[in-house]
Simulated scan of single mutants.
Amino acid sequence: MVNNAGIAWEESVLDITPENWRRIIDVNLNGMFWVAQEIAKVMVRQREGVILNMASTNGLVGEAKYAHYNASKGGVVLLTKTMAIELGASGIRVNAVCPGYIQTPMSEAIDDTEFVDQYVRDKIPLGRTGKPNDVAGVFAFLASEDAAFVTGECLVVDGGQLAF
């Protein structure tokens, strides 16, 4: 099961309202938990399964103006590890993928070319933003038998950004 949920918007930690905080936590973390819990119950009965959670590099390091998003994705990272510990004896593997800057058709509509070029120059050693296929391949690997002994991991897909 691929558990993919995420919303975010830029907002100073001083300006986040309770409603905005709850909205992001509800979608990005709570929703992911409730879906994973339900599918895990089925997988436990079957004594096998793979749960793959979409986290983010923002769950591993902070980014200004995204406190609510960072907190939600950090929660996904620890949820992944905890589920791996609890469900492993039932033959269920639980991992997360932590993408960095991935450009999608939706993001390209709002990405400023100058900003993207500067961001890539300053922060991504591979010299480009990621593409959806860069992330899809990692999910495919983690779902496959090639990853049969991988659980509790959060695989970073960021072109080297966190290597700094």
Rank of each mutant, 00 (worst) to 15 (best):
Met1Ile: 11
Met1Lys: 12
Val2Pro: 06
Val2Met: 14
Val2Gln: 15
Asn3His: 15
Asn3Asp: 14
Asn4Gln: 07
Gly6Ser: 06
Ile7Thr: 02
Ala8Pro: 00
Glu11Gly: 00
Glu11Ala: 10
Ser12Asn: 13
Ser12Val: 01
Val13Phe: 10
Ile16Asp: 08
Ile16Pro: 05
Pro18Val: 14
Pro18Thr: 14
Glu19Leu: 11
Glu19Ile: 07
Glu19Ala: 14
Asn20Tyr: 05
Asn20Arg: 12
Trp21Pro: 03
Arg23Asp: 12
Ile24Gly: 04
Ile24Asp: 01
Ile24Ala: 03
Ile24Met: 04
Ile24Ser: 04
Ile24Phe: 04
Ile25Val: 09
Leu29His: 02
Leu29Met: 10
Met32Pro: 04
Phe33Leu: 08
Phe33Ser: 10
Val35His: 02
Ala36Met: 15
Gln37Met: 06
Gln37Arg: 15
Gln37Ala: 14
Gln37Pro: 12
Glu38Pro: 10
Glu38Ser: 09
Glu38Gly: 10
Lys41Pro: 04
Met43Ala: 11
Arg45Tyr: 02
Glu48Gln: 09
Gly49Ile: 13
Val50Gly: 04
Ile51Leu: 11
Ile51Tyr: 06
Ala55Asn: 15
Thr57His: 11
Val61Asn: 02
Gly62Glu: 03
Gly62Ala: 12
Ala64Glu: 08
Ala64Ser: 07
Ala64Cys: 07
Lys65Phe: 15
Lys65Leu: 15
Tyr66Cys: 07
Tyr66Ala: 11
Ala67Thr: 09
His68Cys: 12
His68Asp: 09
Tyr69Phe: 05
Tyr69Asp: 03
Asn70Tyr: 02
Ser72Tyr: 06
Lys73Gly: 13
Gly75Ile: 00
Val76Ile: 07
Val76Asp: 07
Val77His: 05
Leu78Phe: 08
Leu78Gly: 11
Leu79Val: 03
Leu79Asn: 04
Thr80Tyr: 06
Lys81Asp: 09
Met83Val: 09
Ala84Lys: 01
Ile85Glu: 11
Ile85Phe: 07
Glu86Thr: 08
Leu87Met: 12
Leu87Gly: 14
Leu87Gln: 08
Gly88Asp: 11
Gly88Thr: 12
Ser90Ile: 10
Ser90Val: 11
Gly91Tyr: 10
Arg93Gln: 08
Ala96Trp: 06
Val97Ala: 02
Cys98Ala: 15
Pro99Leu: 00
Gly100Cys: 14
Tyr101Thr: 07
Tyr101Ser: 05
Gln103Pro: 02
Gln103Asn: 05
Gln103Gly: 09
Thr104Arg: 03
Thr104Phe: 02
Ser107Cys: 08
Ser107Pro: 00
Asp112Thr: 13
Thr113Arg: 15
Thr113Ile: 15
Glu114Ala: 11
Asp117Ala: 14
Gln118Asp: 14
Gln118Gly: 13
Lys123Thr: 14
Ile124His: 09
Gly127Thr: 06
Thr129Ala: 08
Thr129Asp: 05
Gly130Ser: 00
Lys131Gln: 02
Pro132Ser: 04
Asn133His: 10
Asn133Cys: 06
Asp134Gln: 01
Ala136Ile: 07
Ala136Met: 01
Ala136Gln: 01
Gly137Leu: 03
Leu142Asn: 01
Leu142Asp: 05
Ala143Ile: 03
Glu145Phe: 03
Glu145Trp: 01
Asp146Leu: 12
Glu153Gln: 10
Cys154Lys: 01
Cys154Thr: 14
Cys154Ile: 05
Cys154Gln: 00
Leu155Lys: 04
Leu155Gly: 03
Val156His: 02
Val156Leu: 03
Gly160Arg: 04
Gln161Ala: 15
Ala163Val: 10
Phe164Met: 15
Phe164Ile: 15
